[in-house]
Each structure stands twice: as structure tokens, then as C-alpha cells.
Design a binder for these strands. Structure first.
Lengths: 193, 193
DNA sequence: CGCATGTGAGACATCATTGTCTCATCCGCT
DNA sequence: AGCGGATGAGACAATGATGTCTCACATGCG
């Protein structure tokens, strides 16, 4: 099988592109139809159904790809090296390309009503929290804001950033600066800056 | 008309309660059925349909009430009085009761596909931005983070907070502290604290 | 008590979405 | 040119949501 690695128009690439546009669309309009998702991706509904059995399969694939890419971004950010502040900076930079995915996943993850919290998500939560805890123990971060809250807050900021970029209210090149500076330093002017 | 102000079980109150539970539910599960919305509010689907012609009417009412309550919260916060930092603090405190609404509105507001951005929303945006600009001009806030971004970021933080409280990851009493401290001071320890 | 109003439960037709199918077409490859 | 694989367009039934209806019941009021 797979004797020909040449693809007709696009193939493995297409799958990712489809998921990317689906995430973009579903982030804004969670009730979007399969037909709308297909059109947003520039393919027909038939092809969409060939790649993903149904809406559930699409969302699951969306989660898997998003979580995987997010984990890869965290790997690249080397969260356990150097100063925690710098690690946060690297983290946001690496996360930017997947920020759309992250925004979607954050809003959609509790969609799993009674089921257990997707464990892949818990792992990512933990990696964020570990970083913040490390910064606290190193005396670099304040200790009156819990790692769990900082994790949620960073999700929120990244989502807001992705959102703003998508709407043209924020230049993509300012994405990481705006997020990191606000998260680390806050809005208040301080003498040490 | 309206000769009897006595209500059977609840009436005007009920409407608000319905909208409140609808916001809570739809924030978590945007694809929720009218039937689910009705059950979440503790009423029958028939009654829900009597109060709101359909899903669109429900969402529109949701927006109107949410925006109105949000504006009222901003009024109470007296954003133009005293130090900008204190105004931010009052703002978050006043917004907390409507944070669920706000989280819903933020995610759902672009649901209006081609139509114009709901103008009521633009007004609220502006009030936030004015506050941040005032803080900057007073030398209280740093000037390298644009008021527009700070507005979006605060939405994100409030949403994350509402979200965390709803899931029990954050105590309701810590809501405003966690948000305000992070927004104003950031996570980095600084000498002036 | 009798009436009016609002409600819950359910039946029902209608509509939209979904999932599956077929068929014509296009493109890369041999 | 001929072939294989993938696609787009559309038909189709099945499913689910929606909107409207009726009826029985409860509650407040005169």
C-alpha cells in the first residue's frame, strides 16, 4: 500500500489545512454546519465526510492534532531551562502558531459533558503549572497567585491574543510581546522596568 | 393592561433566571438544544418558546440583558473616579456577578456573521479603553501596551476567571483579587510590592 | 366557588442537518 | 492516450431540532 507518495492535489497537507480552518471557524461559530466547515476549508461536504466520518470525528481529530501540536510547542520551548520568565517568553512564541487551536480547545474542552477531562489536556495543564511553580520557588514569580490560576489566565490571554490577531485588532508580530509583557509585568508602571 | 402585578410563580424574575441559566449552559455547550436550555432553566420547552420566539430571539435577549447588566456594572464602578488602578479593581468587583454573561458574549459576539458589530459592545469596549488610556496618561500604567489590547486581555482574564470559578478551580471570593493582581502587577516579583 | 392566566406534557408537521450514495470530472502518473 | 485515485455536485433517506398546537392542571384573583 501507499506505493505512490505523490499526491494528486494535496493530501496529508490538506487534512491539516482542513482542521486548521475548521478550528478557526468553530472558534467563532460553534454551531457551524458541516457544510459551512467544508466551505470554509474550500472543499466539498463529500470530501469532508471522506476524511472525517462525522462531526464527532472531526472534533476528536481537531483535539488530537491541537493537543499534539501544543505539546510539540511546549517541547520546543524548553520550559525547564533557564529563568522561568524566559521560559514563559519562549512558550508564548512557540504557541503562537497554534493559538487558534488552543482557543478552540479551551472553549470546547468542557463540551465533554459527563466524560472525563481529556487526559492530554491535563498533561498540558500540568506542564504550565510546573513552570509557574518553578518560577515561584526560584523567587522569580510572586506566590500569591496560584499556578493553577496562572495557567488558566495564560490560556485566557493567549485566546484573547489569537482572537485579536484574527480580527485585525492586534498585529501578529506583537502577539507574544503583548501577552508576555502583560503576564509578567502587569499593566502598572513599576520602578524596576 | 397589567392590572394585576401579582405573579403566579415568578414572572419578570423568571425571565432573567432563564436567561442566566441559558448563558451558563450555552457558555459550556454552545450547541445545546432548546430542550436542554429549558431543562437547565427548570421550565418546559413550551414555556421557553412562549417567552422567546426561537433560538435567535433567545440569543438576542441574552445579548441585550448581558450588555445592559454589564453597562450597569460599569456605571457602579465609577471608572472615571480616583486612581485608575482602583477603578480597575472596582470594575472587576462589579463585573463578577455578570462574568458568566460576559464570557458567553465574548465568545458568541462574532456570531453575527456579516452584520455589524453590535454597537452596544463597541460602547463597552470604549469604556474599558478610556479607563486604560486614563491610567496611561496619568503615568500610572505603562504605555507600551495599547488600551485596545488591555481591553481584550481583561475580557480574557475575566472569562478565564468566570470559567475557573464555574469549574471549582478558583474560589469565588478570590475572583477579583486574582484577576486584578495579575492584570495590574503581573506575575513577576517586583521590588515595589 | 368559578374564572382567568400561566404552565407542563406531549402530539404533530416542518425544516435543517446528517450520513450515504452515485456519477461526472479533473489531475497526475505510466 | 489511458488508467487510477480523489474530488465536487447533487440525490436520497434517516435523524434530530424546531415551531405550533391541544389539553390537563395548578395557582391567584374576584
Amino acid at each position: 500500500m501507499m506505493s505512490h507518495m505523490r499526491y494528486c492535489c494535496l493530501m496529508a497537507v490538506d487534512r491539516e489545512h482542513v482542521l486548521r480552518s475548521a478550528a478557526d471557524l468553530l472558534t467563532r461559530k460553534a454551531t457551524a454546519t458541516m457544510d459551512e466547515v467544508a466551505k470554509a476549508a474550500g472543499i466539498s461536504r463529500a470530501t469532508l465526510h471522506r476524511q472525517f466520518a462525522g462531526r464527532d470525528a472531526l472534533v476528536k481529530a481537531l483535539e488530537e492534532l491541537g493537543l499534539r501540536q501544543l505539546e510539540e510547542a511546549l517541547d520546543r520551548a524548553r520550559l525547564d531551562e533557564g529563568a522561568a520568565s524566559d521560559a514563559v517568553r519562549r512558550l508564548v512564541v512557540e504557541v503562537q502558531p497554534v493559538a487558534g487551536f488552543l482557543a478552540f480547545l479551551v472553549t470546547e474542552n468542557q463540551l465533554f459533558e459527563g466524560e472525563q477531562q481529556h487526559q492530554g489536556w491535563a498533561r498540558i495543564d500540568e506542564r504550565f503549572a510546573v513552570l509557574f511553580r518553578r518560577g515561584q520557588e526560584a523567587g522569580e514569580f510572586r506566590i500569591d497567585l496560584s499556578p493553577a490560576w496562572l495557567t488558566e489566565a495564560l490560556y485566557g490571554l493567549i485566546g484573547a491574543g489569537a482572537w485579536s490577531v484574527q480580527d485585525g485588532r492586534l498585529a501578529a508580530k506583537d502577539f507574544s510581546y503583548m501577552i508576555v509583557e502583560l503576564l509578567l509585568g502587569g499593566v502598572r508602571r513599576s520602578v524596576e522596568r
